[in-house]
């Protein structure tokens, strides 16, 4: 590792086998960032740690959607990202001043809420069933 990559370690948040990977690779090659460290979107909390400790100074997402998902999931301390001199980049992004950008943020939030509600519902049902069975066994044995 040379001196420059040590001071500016680049993290890529993208699934290596996902649909965004070819565009990401093309972007990294064009930017001369072939040594960038890849993280799966589910490991974005590791990127957050690396950013907060100053190990990573540049983060690349395929689109803004992955960053928004991480924000909704509370997986990153974005205030630290904003306060640091982090360089945040997207391979593809809507024009920040366009209505399409607002729509993309809204759609991301709506999708996240729907998924979150569904997961919490399923988890709640399963946990409730387990609790009921455990309570039944407990009472059965004590009688």
């Amino acid at each position: 590792m040379n001196a420059q990559t040590q001071t500016e370690c680049v993290a890529v948040v993208c699934d290596r086998d996902g649909g965004d990977a070819p565009a990401m690779e093309a972007f990294l090659t064009a930017q001369g960032l072939a040594d960038a460290e890849w993280f799966a979107p589910r490991d974005v909390d590791e990127v957050d740690q690396a950013v907060c400790t100053g190990r990573v100074r540049r983060v690349v997402f395929p689109t803004e959607t992955q960053l928004l998902e991480a924000l909704w999931n509370n997986e990153i301390a974005f205030e630290h990202w904003l306060a640091s001199d982090l360089r945040l980049e997207f391979v593809k992004m809507c024009e920040p001043t366009s209505a399409a950008h607002v729509e993309a943020v809204f759609e991301s939030w709506r999708r996240w809420q729907r998924r979150h509600r569904r997961r919490q519902f399923v988890a709640g049902i399963i946990l409730s069933i387990v609790a009921i069975v455990a309570a039944f066994v407990l009472l059965l044995i004590r009688n």
Partner: peptide
């Protein structure tokens, strides 16, 4: 059964209160 019931109730409480995400 007792351990499972206690733990599952804890998880249920945290699910309802938003302290865990699945």
């Amino acid at each position: 059964a007792a351990a499972i019931l206690y733990l599952v109730l804890l998880y249920l409480a945290w699910t309802i209160s938003g302290n865990v995400r699945f």
